[in-house]
C-alpha cells in the first residue's frame, strides 16, 4: 500500500472540497433560482467536464497553465509560480473537473425548495443571509453533502487530468490512482490489488451513502 500516495489523494480531495463547497453553493443557488440570458450555455460549460475525456480537459488545462503564455505566463511573471506539475495546479484542475459533481446536486437541492418557503422566510423578517442559513441550507443539506461525497470520491479516483497536469511526482503529484498504474507497470501486482480493492470499497461506501441520503431526503420531516 502506497500510503504517501493515499495521503496525497486524501489531501487533494479535502482541499478541493474546501473550494468546491462555496463555489457549489453560490453557483447551485444561482442556477436554481435565477433565469437569465445564456443560462443554458453556462450549464453546458459547467457540465462539460462530465462528458469530456479527462485527458482532453487535462490537455487544455496544461495549455492554459503553461508558463509560456496567457494565464500561466502572467502567474509566472507576477507571482513567480507555475501551475503545472505541482500540487496547487492539481487542486485547480481538480476543482474544475469536479464542478458538475458539486454544482448539479446542489442546484437540484436548492431548486427543490418551494419558492413560497423562501418568501415566507422573508416575510418573517429574515434577511437574505438568514434565509440561506436558517432555511435553505438545512433544507438542501442532503444535496450539499451528496455533492461533497461524490466530489471527494471522484477526486480520489481521478487519473487522466492528474497525470496530464501534475505528472507523476511522488509526494507532490502522485495520487493513489496514478500509484496503482505505476505499480502495475512495475509488475507489483500485490500493491496494485490492495490499493484497487481499497478504492473499490471506498467507492461502494460512497455510493451507498449518497443513496441513503437521497432516500432520507425524500422522507417527510418527522
Amino acid at each position: 500500500m502506497d500510503w504517501q500516495a493515499l495521503t496525497l489523494s486524501v489531501k487533494l480531495s479535502l482541499v478541493t472540497l474546501l473550494f468546491l463547497l462555496p463555489i457549489g453553493i453560490i453557483f447551485g443557488r444561482w442556477l436554481a433560482y435565477r433565469q437569465f440570458f445564456g443560462k443554458s450555455l453556462v450549464q453546458t460549460l459547467l457540465t462539460l467536464p462530465l462528458i469530456l475525456p479527462p485527458t482532453v480537459l487535462g490537455y487544455y488545462l496544461l495549455v492554459v497553465f503553461s508558463p509560456n503564455q496567457g494565464l500561466g505566463l502572467w502567474l509566472s511573471n507576477t507571482f513567480g509560480t507555475t501551475l503545472v506539475f505541482n500540487f496547487e495546479g492539481l487542486v485547480l484542475a481538480s476543482v474544475i473537473f469536479n464542478l458538475p459533481f458539486a454544482i448539479q446536486p446542489m442546484q437540484r437541492a436548492f431548486a427543490a425548495i418551494p419558492r413560497e418557503i423562501r418568501e415566507a422566510a422573508a416575510c418573517c423578517g429574515m434577511s437574505p443571509g438568514q434565509v440561506l442559513w436558517k432555511i435553505e441550507l438545512p433544507l438542501a443539506w442532503h444535496g450539499i453533502v451528496s455533492a461533497m461525497v461524490m466530489s471527494f470520491a471522484h477526486t480520489l479516483g481521478e487519473f487522466g487530468i492528474v497525470l496530464m497536469v501534475g505528472g507523476n511526482i511522488p509526494a507532490e503529484t502522485q495520487t493513489i490512482a496514478i500509484s496503482i498504474y505505476d505499480r502495475v507497470q512495475a509488475f507489483d501486482d500485490h500493491s496494485a490489488a490492495v490499493m484497487s480493492f481499497s478504492l473499490l470499497l471506498f467507492s461502494m461506501m460512497t455510493i451507498s451513502f449518497t443513496y441513503w441520503l437521497s432516500e432520507r431526503s425524500e422522507k417527510p420531516h418527522v
Binding site: 413560497e116 418557503i117 418568501e119 415566507a120 422566510a121 416575510c123 432555511i135 438545512p138 433544507l139 420531516h221
Partner: peptide, 14 residues
C-alpha cells in the same frame, strides 16, 4: 412589517 398567509401555508418543514 407584513404578515402573509400563503395558499399552501409555506411552513418551514424542518
Amino acid at each position: 412589517k407584513v404578515g402573509l398567509v400563503f395558499q399552501n401555508y409555506a411552513l418551514f418543514p424542518h
